[in-house]
Design a protein around this nucleic acid. Structure first.
Lengths: 209, 209
DNA sequence: CCGTCTATTTATAATTC
DNA sequence: TGAATTATAAATAGACG
């Protein structure tokens, strides 16, 4: 139900607490630096305020802020939040623009993500279906000999495969000029009797029997 | 001396404010998501507390915290040491941070959603691969006559299909007591010569000529 | 404006020294 | 053990639609 993996490098990691303390601390140190670096890049390149707090597995605090102190950034956010609380009492209908912007953006994104998840679920199911269908079909063409228990069953498989063979033979005949309908190959001879079977074979695609 | 550049991709960027507002906003959006994701990874993999606050160029606040609220993380840090207490806020907690708390929850859910999307994408890709493989195989068995342009091509298909037929014939022969290897059917006769072709057909999958 | 693609750079897990 | 190396995955800038 959740993201199982993350990260680059030789292999992917499971999104789950690293149990070995040494590895965990090592991991933390590296990743912490990267996040710090990227936070700083964001703050500088976009000229925005960023505040960051991280606790190491040992409890050591690392903080970053684009302003003098992290508190300044927090206060900014608090003020922002406070602004959102202000409503003009005389005009209850009049919502502060900032509130509309921020809230709707959040909601919008949530809805968007949920939509993506749903669409993926749909795609997944369709794909699974297609795959299962395709694999079923392949079972007809590549039957497991040990699973065939009767001549009738074998005949059913054979019929199916024969339609494919007929298609090819037909194709070859056409390519050779359509003159010799009965083809002879180095090591295989196939003869056809009527075209009904061919037609039937041609339309038998998609559904099995 | 210092890091004058940053980033991956086609070129390096100068560590300086992006002047074009559109580019800046675009840059912010992408990078913000990455930092959120990585912060979450750090929190989960290392089982530590992380708090993050980012302002967009437009002033929109994005927050993340591994705890219920960013406030919790902040308080943790404040209790930890005076490191962050350079300035004691003149209006301490005059405004409860309910808004931030709410936003944190939103972001937390966002992270979760993003994770789901990613795991789905992974599954999707795997399925697509399997399906494409299966369909490729089926193309050998159900060639589109109109797409076969040479006898050589037709021969390749034929060999492939023949191996399936041989399997069936073999199976039938066994079921019938292994006496008649050459089967005769109502309207089609197929004879086999050697098994080399089968092997060849079996390995020729993937690419046609 | 927003997604997609691709070449390139970064980040980094595993491994080596 | 831990710093350096290597192989691999992720991030992402720029281009295109």
């Amino acid at each position: 139900m959740f993201n199982l993996h993350c990260s680059m490098g030789r292999t992917k990691l499971v999104m789950k607490k690293i149990e070995d303390p040494t590895s965990r601390q090592q991991f933390y140190s590296k990743r912490k630096d990267t996040i710090l670096k990227k936070s700083n890049e964001l703050a500088v390149l976009c000229d925005v305020d960023v505040g960051l707090l991280m606790f190491s597995p040992a409890g050591e605090v690392t903080s970053y802020s684009s302003k003098e102190s992290l508190e300044d950034v927090m206060l900014l956010a608090m003020n922002k939040a406070g602004e959102l609380n202000k409503r003009s009492p005389e005009n209850p209908n009049e919502q502060p623009l900032t509130e509309i912007l921020t809230q709707s953006k959040h909601e919008g994104k949530m809805v968007e993500k949920i939509a993506i998840v749903e669409s993926h679920e749909e795609k997944l199911n369709k794909l699974k279906e297609s795959l299962s269908e395709a694999q079923q079909k392949i079972r007809y063409y590549e039957p497991q000999v040990e699973n065939i228990n009767s001549v009738q069953e074998a005949d059913a498989y054979e019929k199916f495969i024969r339609s494919a063979m007929e298609l090819i033979q037909l194709s070859k005949a056409k390519l050779l000029g359509g003159q010799e309908f009965f083809q002879r190959n180095e090591n295989v001879a196939v003869s056809f009797v009527n075209t009904e079977d061919m037609a039937a074979a041609g339309t038998s695609r998609g559904r099995m029997y």
